[in-house]
Design a protein around this nucleic acid. Structure first.
Length: 596
DNA sequence: ATAGGGTTAG
């Protein structure tokens, strides 16, 4: 009998097909049973509760939906909205969308909240294709899109990496006065600006909010504080914290966590301690996020013992660690070369019923690859398969990278094919690894044809991968093709970076085209892509290679004037010259001048 | 009953 209640009704079993969440191999909880005699008030109370916390199991939500369809007449649109909200809480977005569709088919009354919840769910799927038709659906049904609708859509566009369209929508709303944007609207746009490295524009919009009387809140400030921290402008972030406090906007646990992350990643450990004390005084208690930030920060510093201490405190304080906590810890042990300890963490996780995910395995695989223990990395990949955890692009990319570095390039082909067969698409990083591996192992023809294929698919529109190709072409003596690729960058809309320039300057010098190298350097000196120490060293070595000792002096002076200095390979080249050509007085003079 | 900010590698 128990099997009947724990099985979803046949009618709604198709929702399960759309469930985005993997079925965890955890112990089943006792099933929730809405008995046919459940009364309206009982059901309504249950829905109210579940809309706050979500159902324990998806099946329970489906059974409730069944029950609601039977009791339809006595239920209101609010009850159905609460069910959809519960699904959103459970991150079962595709189920929510399917259920919304079902409701429409069955002519169950909906309102603007139902539509907004459905749009919100669509925005969390990997496409917005259904979100905008729903906007049209609102109008067709005689409702008016409200500020929730637009805020949801703007956020959806931003999370699908479509910031321009998000900005357009925002501007349109203001221009045509469709709705009055509220603080949430501004906060969403401000966060979008921050995450596209437009922090100064975000700050301007914050001032605009104040100007028009749409008061910024803790969320507004936290977005900008986070952005400043990530740009390593922690002191400016701290200024904003005092500004918000002065205005009576209290920093909350998220603001503090954001700052904590900023302080930790710039190594300001004393300030971190002070901040944690301040949180205690203000009775703002660290949550799971906060602790995870701390654990991760300690691990990245190699202080795994401190990380273990934090985990101990978490457990004591009733904030149990999750997979992110343990993954961070495993990464810490990998970083410090303690692979055995890292594997132990995997077992600790299992015994605490926190199931390792692909991420956990990727950390271990990366650890083994770095230690050049490729066979262990590969056996973990097999273990993933046994446990039913799907490897992702990163899993494969890491191992392919490791194989190339170990000179095991003949195994790469099979692994790459295996990846494609599993339906895992290579990304730009995979392409960089493959192209670099082919070039470094002198498979230039394969490298070029691989590049062409990637070019056709439009996934190599990136300066870094061009750098790899140009470098490979030079190192394999294909000088004309290297220059050709460089010359074509602009027409492809790509901006050469310092690395491109370094490769080209080195190439020109090796070809004896010293004038061209110099021209490229002076272009850089007047442009936006300023030469760094590496560039100067490259061209100084190039000048020596071309026996242009006078120019070597000028270049060295230029470099030193910019507070850069010679590197080991330039110095050893000079020492080499000194020992070989001591009979030539101009060489001797240069070497002595350089080394003094 | 619906919208916005913080944590994970190659």
């Amino acid at each position: 009998m128990a099997s009947i209640v724990s099985t979803p009704s046949l009618f709604h079993s198709h929702f399960l097909l759309f469930s985005t969440k993997p079925n965890p191999n955890s112990q089943p909880k006792p099933p929730f049973i809405p008995s046919p005699s459940t009364t309206h008030p009982e059901l309504k109370q249950l829905l109210y509760h579940k809309s706050k916390v979500g159902f324990d199991k998806l099946d329970d939500a489906l059974l409730v939906f069944d029950q609601m369809l039977r009791l339809k007449s006595g239920l209101s649109v609010v009850d159905f909205n609460q069910l959809l909200t519960a699904l959103v809480r459970m991150k079962e977005y595709s189920v929510a969308v399917s259920m919304f569709r079902e409701m429409r088919v069955l002519s169950i009354p909906v309102d603007i909240v139902t539509f907004n919840t459905a749009i919100h769910s669509c925005c969390h799927l990997n496409t917005l294709d259904y979100a905008f038709p729903l906007l049209a659906g609102i109008i067709k049904s005689g409702w008016v899109p409200d500020v929730f609708t637009y805020n949801t859509l703007i956020k959806g566009l931003l999370s699908q990496d479509r910031p321009l369209e998000a900005g357009d929508l925002f501007n349109k709303l203001i221009r045509f006065q469709e709705i009055q944007p509220d603080a949430v609207t501004y906060n969403t746009i401000i966060d979008g600006l921050c995450k596209t490295s437009n922090t100064s524009m975000a700050l301007k919009l914050l001032r605009k909010m104040e100007e028009i009387g749409c008061n910024p809140d803790a969320v507004t400030y936290t977005s900008i504080i986070d952005s400043l921290c990530k740009e390593r402008r922690v002191d400016q972030a701290l200024v904003l914290v005092s500004e918000m406090t002065d205005k009576g906007i209290s920093p909350d646990v998220i603001t503090y966590s954001t700052l904590l992350q900023g302080l930790c990643s710039s190594g300001r450990w004393e300030d971190t301690e002070r901040l944690l004390t301040e949180m205690g005084v203000r009775r703002i208690y660290p949550d799971l996020h906060t602790y995870n930030i701390l654990v991760d920060a300690y691990c990245k510093e190699g202080r795994t013992t401190h990380a273990e201490d934090v985990i101990e405190i978490m457990i004591q304080k009733g904030v149990p660690p999750d997979s992110i906590t343990y993954n961070a810890l495993m990464d810490g042990y990998c970083l410090t070369g303690k692979m055995d300890r890292a594997l132990e963490v995997l077992n600790t996780m299992r015994s605490n019923e926190i199931w390792p995910n692909y991420y956990s395995y990727n950390i271990l695989i990366n650890g083994y690859c770095k230690r050049q223990e490729l066979d262990k990395a590969i056996s973990l990949l097999r273990q993933m398969r046994v446990e039913g955890i799907k490897a992702d692009v990163q899993t494969y990319s890491t191992i392919i990278h490791g194989l190339f570095q170990m000179g095991r390039h003949n195994e790469v082909d099979n692994l790459f094919l295996e990846m494609l067969k599993e339906g895992t698409k290579p990304n730009i990083v995979t392409c960089r690894i493959l192209l670099d591996g082919l070039c470094k192992n002198r498979y230039m023809d394969e490298a070029i044809s691989f590049f062409r294929v990637m070019e056709c698919k439009g996934i190599v529109h990136d300066i870094q991968i061009h750098n790899i190709l140009i470098d490979g072409l030079y190192k394999n003596g294909k000088l004309d093709e290297a220059r050709n690729t460089f010359d074509k960058l602009a027409s492809r809309g790509l901006q050469p970076d310092v690395i491109t320039h370094n490769i080209m300057i080195r190439g020109f010098c090796q070809e004896g085209l010293f004038e061209e190298a110099k021209e490229l350097l002076s272009k850089m000196e007047t442009g936006i892509c300023l030469p760094d120490a590496v560039i100067y060293n490259t061209i100084i070595r190039g000048s020596l290679l071309n026996k242009r000792y006078g120019e070597a002096v000028v270049l060295t002076e230029n470099m030193r004037a910019r507070k850069f200095s010679e590197d080991a390979s330039t110095t050893s080249m000079v020492l080499d010259l000194l020992s070989k050509e001591e009979q030539d007085p101009s060489v001797l003079a240069f070497c002595k001048w350089f080394l003094q």
